[in-house]
Nucleic acid binder design. Structure first.
Lengths: 377, 377
DNA sequence: CTGTTAGCGCCTTCAC
DNA sequence: GTGAAGGCGCTAACAG
């Protein structure tokens, strides 16, 4: 049916093995034969049969990138960065594919199964994780099994898996052939432990709240993300830590001034309305992220409130549109592209794992026009 | 190493063939054996070896979705919609993967090769195509070959391939094994022609310009997308058609009032500045899309111009943030989610092809606050 | 440096 | 309804 290796071999007057060697390039072949083979490949328009080669080699060139919401630039930027590291020029023949979990733990697991079935070379899990004991255990188990099968695991934008969830790994004693060509790549035996590129959400949220406090705000509403998500929790913790440090009394109100919702625009809109209802005197609103912040702004405007004269608003992430919002949004910048690129390199083993297997990416306060001192009334 | 079909078979006390039949589900198996097999699968945590099954069955469950810019919600929404049609509940075991071409024709081809190599079940190409004769020919050739190998091809958001580029298809005489299980699915022999879900960009642009003309605008700037892209051309054509219909004299200025740039925010910013330089008296600016429009708004504001009092601005696509911009953006809505979902169903063969293989999606004018009558000075 | 020989794990006719 | 057997296309030792 389709052109096969054998066809090419026949055309070039060599054996199939030689063609295979030329194509994979990791084996010495005479220049003359090589070009003869290449020409035959051209003429026949031969395309390797991925499944067959994956079966024989017991590895594939698929790299999975799991995202919570592909329509959200937060993930798009990271996914794009991961993929940029898999360019043919850089990493040849890798197929980085992004899978949209929609934030559902079940689908996360489903995609991992699909990827496991494909014997993926690596998997990058991006964005916040769901903090549910059962799910975490299932996730850890699946990742461990994939790692054991040689799949590299990288977490990007979520914390490392809890220690106890990954326990049980590495119980197979490593065979003793150590020191083999050390430095070029790590010893291949024993599954590589998951590597994490974490974001400093806590620190960022803390600095953002400190910024608001410094401006003089005391009644600060918080439209948080979905409960049970690591990112939601960390940002909230940073926020409250800043509050507590400044004046423990502020902390008692915090609960009342917090609402939860999805990471989308309408949650921001609804959340802001709810906060206004609970505390008409608030002077600032922090949002779970920039998209939510836009929704908050819309709600405030619809209520006849000016930003930042009447109420200050801040987001998180510093997505491209944030600087262009009217007014420009104060937010916390996460270097998503850099983080994604690094995750990509880590996934390919082109960059060595950070000490402890965890790299934390710094976040930076971007103070812009949407925050100002509160009205002096 | 890993658990295989044979292991499961042994555990369940049946043959490998039986396990295979249970798992693929398309063959009668006694209820008792079936559950025995299923239990063995559970206990052993068996996961099918994708490459092996793809090799044996000569088809895989990979579906590729090519996008020009994964960080752009325009594509994210479509990709998400395509993927939503591949949910395990709906289409079982399909792995929809999105590949980011970055708008580069070479990478588009590269990804198609990768997908071809994986014997992808289907490929969905989204967004504007590059109008370059050589590339179009190469693309058509590759798609034809993939189609011949049984891969379903769907175009979403771009026009059908030119007739002459797809010619040459179907010259291989069909093998005579017809009528096998007819009625369950279409005759599998003979490649399915590419199916297109096109957007009515021309009509949308036309209505948008008519809206501006009706408001009284005559000096209308246009920040267009990249040259050589189908979408860019179609929107521009719609715009100019409206101009010509209203007053042929307007057409002569059109060229001078058009600048080209990428589909991003900074192109909008720079483009608006350039237009202002060329025609300080313009009263409205149309943008290639909503993202570009935001850049235009930023530039105008920075020049001290109010929107829409001094200059009206309009975008295209109606991305979620457009309604929330300040002022809310007049734009043309494209039902991206619906289009993507349909493309997904088409890719799976769960929906039959539209007559002629081309479905055109309607676009709708969304007149909002960013457009108003021009100043009467 | 190149050819030969075995499988990789699964699906799919064929018999029973 | 179930088992046995061959082969999908390629890679990875081995020889030479």
């Amino acid at each position: 049916m389709a052109v096969t290796l054998a066809d090419v071999a026949a055309r070039a007057g060599v054996s199939a093995a030689t063609v295979s060697r030329v194509l994979s390039g990791n084996y010495p072949v005479a220049g003359a034969t090589r070009s003869r083979v290449l020409r035959a490949v051209e003429e026949l328009e031969y395309v390797v049969n991925g499944p067959a080669s994956a079966l024989a080699a017991a590895t594939s060139d698929l790299v999975g990138v799991l995202v919570n919401d592909i329509a959200d630039p937060f993930f798009g930027i990271m996914a794009s960065a991961v993929q940029s590291e898999m360019e043919p020029e850089k990493a040849g023949r890798k197929l980085a594919v992004v899978c949209n979990t929609g934030g559902s733990p079940e689908r996360e697991l489903t995609y991992l199964t699909l990827l496991q079935r494909q014997r993926a070379a690596a998997v990058v899990l991006t964005g916040s994780a769901v903090e549910d004991e059962k799910h975490t255990a299932a996730l850890a188990a699946r990742l461990r099994r994939m790692a054991e099968a040689g799949t590299r695991i990288v977490l990007c934008g979520r914390p490392p898996l809890p220690e106890d969830a990954v326990a049980g790994r590495g119980d197979a004693p490593r065979s003793g052939k150590a020191g083999r060509d050390a430095g070029k790549d790590e010893t291949e035996d024993g599954p590589a432990a998951p590597i994490t590129v974490a974001f400093d959400n806590r620190g960022g949220a803390r600095r953002l709240t400190e910024h608001l406090l410094a401006l003089g705000h005391r009644r600060i509403g918080y439209v948080a993300g979905p409960v049970e998500r690591t990112t939601t929790r960390h940002r909230l913790e940073g926020h409250r830590a800043a509050l507590a440090d400044h004046d423990p009394a502020l902390l008692s109100d915090a609960e009342h001034l917090t609402v939860h919702g999805a990471y989308d625009r309408s949650s921001g809109y609804d959340g802001a309305l709810e906060l206004l209802r609970r505390a008409p005197d608030l002077t600032a609103v922090l949002a779970a992220n920039d998209t939510v912040a836009l929704g908050v702004c819309a709600a405030l405007r619809d209520q006849g409130l000016r930003i930042p004269e009447d109420v200050s608003v801040a987001g998180f992430d510093d997505l491209p549109f944030s600087a262009d919002a009217a007014p420009a949004l104060t937010t916390v910048r996460i270097p998503l592209h850099e983080a994604g690129a690094r995750a990509g390199r880590l996934a390919l083993g082109r960059e060595s794992a950070p000490p402890g297997g965890v790299a934390t990416v710094r976040t930076e306060l971007m103070a812009r026009a949407s925050t100002a001192p509160p009205r002096a009334d």
